[in-house]
Design a protein around this nucleic acid. Structure first.
Lengths: 224, 224
DNA sequence: ACAATAGTGTCTGTTAGACACTATGCC
DNA sequence: GGCATAGTGTCTAACAGACACTATTGT
């Protein structure tokens, strides 16, 4: 009975040009396993440094992305898989973040890949199945939760929010139905008096997430 | 950076007299931690014996329950929590099984507790939160999946299935609506020609789960 | 015939989805 | 006024929920 090291493997999603992307990172040249290969930006848990798994995931995400604000949840435990250094337990996470103009650039080894493209890549370890799991969870959860709001910045308009839902779902939604749903779901609020002007058409009202931790869940799916 | 031992903590549900029960086991007298206290029937993973986490969970469940057939799924990874033997990573599972007349009796240290009663008990380690997690998952999943069918034996009638749903949900369902839902969900099939006779009323048609692995999920909840 | 439960039919209020309409800004 | 998009109103077909009805057995 030998204890196992434990790896935190996060799948990080963001929207670029309204397309869902996932963050991959070229492994260190000096790595014993799969040097210079694109992989999930994982990291080992340090039992004496990390209070618990959530803290470990938070630390790994901050370190690997340089970003401060994101939503994340655990997908589950996998493995153990075989690493050249021995069997390793894997805890998979899904994270969702907003990229905007103020976002720090990534370190040069990291890169955003369109989700569909990443799904076709050959990734090391069991990262292909982890990625697949995360994409399924993302697509599924979008059906009945406020998750896509976390792909946008602090503030956003309803048309932007609708586009975020549509881009992850992969099909278009009816404007009227969508707005009714959002009103009823009641997880966003107007930023009173603030609208997006400047374009040659009617300005859009600005909204933000209501102060609350976690996701909001709908009673029924957006489309059956 | 020291590796961690890994404990498999399953929450096992079954129906007794149409009431949901959960399996707890008195810890060994000789145990270093919490001897003789009721706890989840967990066990350590043996990295050299268990192919992966699923195999480990399967082994632990068979060993602790003596039962062969059940549905189980991972709830997630927790911890590490502090055990007298040092920090331990925990992988929580939810399992659902059918008890019938042929079921072997439990070992004398194990006992079925009504779910509501178990929730009020003081359990060791973080077993209280694990149990709470499992109960929430169970109650939630019943809303939109075929899970309760696994609380019944190989064969069952629609009234029995409805009672299983009702007992976990905690409220009654409309017979007509329930049957329409089941027909549409299409995860059970008639055992042709087989009915339950013997009582002084119309016999009920016998059904079984269609051959398929895993759960069936509905498009909408049973009740909003 | 009757009791008791299995199984089906029907009616109605609600709602999702489609789509037409109005509103508001810049040119 | 025209154009482009934001935001609202309306109509209808489908459906969930309530409940009444029929079916089938043993006594």
């Amino acid at each position: 009975m030998k204890p196992l090291p434990c790896s935190i493997d996060p799948v990080v999603f963001a929207l670029i040009d309204n397309q869902p992307h996932v963050l991959l990172r070229k492994r260190d040249e000096s790595s014993q396993a799969f040097p210079d290969v694109y992989a999930l930006p994982g990291g080992l848990m340090y039992p004496h440094e990390d209070k618990d798994l959530t803290a470990a995931a938070d630390r790994v995400l901050r370190k690997k992305t340089g970003l401060q604000s994101f939503y994340f949840e655990q997908l589950g435990a996998l493995g153990p898989h075989i690493d050249p250094r021995g069997p390793t337990l894997v805890i998979a996470y899904m994270a969702v973040m907003a990229l905007d103009s103020q976002t720090k650039p990534l370190d040069p080894r990291s890169k955003w890949f369109p989700v569909d493209k990443a799904l076709k890549m050959k990734l090391p370890f069991e990262h292909n199945s982890t990625l697949k799991m995360a994409v399924e969870r993302l697509r599924n959860k979008v059906n009945y939760s406020s998750l896509p709001a976390h792909l946008l910045g602090e503030e956003f308009t309803l048309p932007q929010l609708q586009k975020a839902y549509e881009s992850v779902l992969g099909f278009d939604l009816d404007k009227s139905a969508f707005r009714k749903k959002m009103a009823e779901a009641d997880f966003i609020e107007e930023v009173v008096g603030k609208r997006i002007t400047g374009a040659a058409f009617r300005p859009a009202q600005v909204y933000r997430l209501k102060a609350s931790t976690g996701l909001h869940h709908f009673a029924a799916n957006l489309r059956r």
